[in-house]
Design a protein around this nucleic acid. Structure first.
Lengths: 333, 333
DNA sequence: CTGTTAGCGCTTTCAT
DNA sequence: ATGAAAGCGCTAACAG
C-alpha cells in the first residue's frame, strides 16, 4: 500500500530552496522573505504536498492529538461530552483518539498505555473509578490529564464538572419539602465516586437537613441502563418510596416507564427526578424533571483546559466547577 | 513537557544486545533465541520501556490507527456504529481517530485531509453525500476507505449496510396492506442518497406494488431530530396521512409524541414505523414498530473489512449487505 | 540467531 | 533570510 510520496525534500528541490526554508513556510515562521514564501507556497500547491504528521511528531515531539478515554460512546451523557471535546480540539488543531473502556479498570490501564505509546500530547479521561494503578501510570507519564464530567476524590487530578453534592441535595430537598418522606436514591455503581461519594452525600445531606433518617433500604444500586430501571419498579413499590432521585436519564426513563406500566400514577403517586437533562427527559411521558448540567460545555472546557496544560501555561485551579440548574417538568408535582 | 525518555537503545545497552534484537522481541519476530528474548523482556519490564509508536510509524509506514469520520457522535445511530468500529479496531490493535463532520461536505474534506496527513492506515466514512471533491481526495490518496451504514450510489467505494430499498418497501407495504392509503414518508435531507435515492425508492415501490399513486405532498423532508418531528404533527394531519414511515428514530419519536400530544390516538388513528430500532423505540409510549438493522455489526463488519483492505487481502465484493428485519410493537395496528 | 547500517520525513540548532 | 547537518526512535534489509 503505497501512501503519499512527495516529501518536503521534493518541494525544496522544485522550489530551489532548502528543506529548512520549506519547513519554515509550512510552519508559518516569519523569517522568510515574502517572495520565497510565495514561491514555496506555489510549489506546495502544485505538488499537492501534505506534511507528514508522523515525521513531524517524531521530530518535534508533539503529535497534536489527544487521547479520550470514554466508558461508552453509545451513552448520550458521554457522547455529549465527547462532542464538546472534539469541537474545541478541532478549534485548536488537535485530533482525538477515542477509546471505549466500559468503565473497566483493566481496559482503562491498557488504553492509557497505548495512548501514551502513541505519544498523545494529553488525555481526557471520563470515568469514575481511579484505581491506584491507573493513578500511578498517569503520574509516571508526564502527560497532562484532565477528567471531564467526573471528580477525583483525592483531588490529585485536574477536572471539570458540576457540584454534584449540592445539585443532588437541592433536588432531593425539593422532593422532601413537597411532602415525600420516603425518597429513593437510585444510581449506577456506588463504587464510582460520583455516585457513592458525591451524589449519595448530597442525598444524605438533604435528608438530614429535613430531619429525615437515612434508610439504606431506599438506596438502589444498579446498572445505568433502561432495562435496569424498568425492573426496579416492584422493589421501589415494595419499599413504599413515593419519589426517587435517579442518577442517570436512561435509568430514570426505565424507572418511570416501569412504574407507569405497573399502573402507578406519575407524578401523583410517584415522583421522579433525574440528573442529566438529556433529550430523553423530553421524550418520555410524562416528561422528566431534571438537574441540568452543561454537558457539551464540560467537554469543551475540559479540552480547553487541557490545551493550556499542554502549552505549559499556568492554570489557576486544578478544578473547574461549572454551574448546574434544575428544570421542572411533569414527573414531579 | 518532557515525555518518555527511555528508548530501544537504552534497552539494547542494558540487555547487552543490539537494538535490532530488541526490535525483534518487541515485534514478536521468532528469530530470537529464547534466552535472549527472556533477557530482553526482563530489561523492558525493569526499565518500563514502551515503544514509541510515532517512530515506529515513521519507520514502518504504518500507524495502526484508522480515521473515523462521523456526522455526529451524539446521535445514537452513529455512535452505535462507532462502538462496533472501535471494538473490532481494538481487537486488531488499531486505534481510531474520531472526527465529527456534521455531514458538512466542507468539513468532511478538511477532516479527510488532516486524517491523511496523520498517515492513518485506513478510513471509515459515515456520511451520505459523497461530493465529487471528496471522491477525488479519496481516490488520490491510496488509503483504503469503507463506508459504514451508507451506500455509494456510484458504487465506487466499498461499503457495508442493509438493503434500504427492500427494507422500506416491506415496511411501507405492510402499512398499506393494513388499509392505509395515505402513508407519509418522513425523512431527513433527501440530498442524502440513503434517503433521497434508496428509502424513497422503497417507498415508491411499495406504493406501486399496491396500486397507489405517489403523492409528493406526502413526502416530508426535515431535520433528523426530535423537535422537527414534533412540529410535523399538524402538517401530517393536514395531509390526512393515516400512517408514516420515518427514517430516523429520534425524528419518529417526535412525530409520535407530537401526534399524541395533539390528541391523535396511536395506533388507532395514526400508525408510525421507524427505521433504526434504537433504545428510543422502547422508551416512548406506545413503543414503536421498527425496521431492525444490526448497527453495531455494521460498524464491526466495516472495520473488519477495512483491516482486510489495509492488509492488502483480496476482498470478494466491494459491498457487504447485512440482514435487516422488522419488529412489531405498539405504534402500528 | 544477531549485529550493522541506512533511512523514514521532518524540526531545529548553528552558521553564514 | 537561508542553508547544512544532526538527530527524533524505530524498522528493515543485509551481512555474517
Amino acid at each position: 500500500m503505497k501512501k503519499q510520496t512527495i516529501t518536503i525534500y521534493d518541494v525544496a528541490r522544485e522550489a530551489g530552496v532548502s528543506m529548512a526554508t520549506v519547513s519554515r513556510v509550512v510552519n508559518g515562521n516569519p523569517n522568510v522573505k515574502p517572495a520565497t514564501r510565495k514561491k514555496v507556497m506555489e510549489v506546495i500547491d502544485k505538488l499537492d504536498y501534505r506534511p507528514n504528521a508522523v515525521a513531524r511528531g517524531l521530530a518535534s515531539k508533539k503529535t497534536t492529538t489527544v487521547g479520550v478515554i470514554i466508558p461508552d460512546v453509545t451513552n448520550v451523557y458521554f457522547s455529549s461530552l465527547a462532542r464538546g471535546i472534539d469541537d474545541v480540539a478541532t478549534m485548536y488543531k488537535y485530533n482525538i483518539i477515542l477509546a471505549n473502556s466500559d468503565g473497566n479498570a483493566q481496559k482503562e490501564v491498557q488504553v492509557l498505555n497505548t495512548l501514551l505509546a502513541k505519544q498523545v500530547d494529553g488525555i481526557i479521561f471520563m470515568g469514575n473509578n481511579l484505581t491506584p494503578e491507573l493513578r500511578e501510570q498517569i503520574n509516571r507519564s508526564r502527560t497532562p490529564v484532565v477528567l471531564a464530567g467526573s471528580v477525583d476524590p483525592e483531588n490529585e487530578l485536574e477536572s471539570v464538572h458540576i457540584d454534584y453534592v449540592a445539585a443532588v441535595k437541592e433536588a432531593v430537598s425539593d422532593l422532601i419539602r413537597r411532602g415525600n418522606e420516603r425518597v429513593a436514591f437510585v444510581s449506577g455503581p456506588l463504587s464510582d465516586a460520583i455516585n457513592g461519594q458525591y451524589r449519595l452525600e448530597g442525598y444524605k445531606q438533604a435528608l438530614k437537613e429535613n430531619d429525615l433518617v437515612f434508610d439504606v433500604d431506599l438506596v438502589f444500586e444498579t446498572d445505568s441502563n433502561y432495562r435496569a430501571g424498568e425492573m426496579l419498579a416492584p422493589a421501589l413499590q415494595a419499599m413504599s418510596a413515593s419519589a426517587a432521585y435517579v442518577s442517570d436519564d436512561e435509568l430514570a426513563a426505565g424507572v418511570l416507564n416501569g412504574a407507569k406500566d405497573a399502573g402507578v400514577k406519575i407524578p401523583e403517586e410517584f415522583e421522579v427526578v433525574t440528573s442529566n437533562n438529556s433529550k430523553l427527559t423530553e421524550i418520555v411521558r410524562p416528561q422528566m424533571s431534571s438537574i441540568t448540567q452543561p454537558l457539551y460545555d464540560i467537554g469543551a472546557v475540559a479540552m480547553r483546559f487541557l490545551t493550556k496544560m499542554m502549552n505549559d501555561e499556568e492554570v489557576e485551579q486544578r478544578t473547574i466547577e461549572l454551574p448546574y440548574g434544575f428544570i421542572k417538568r411533569s414527573s414531579t408535582k
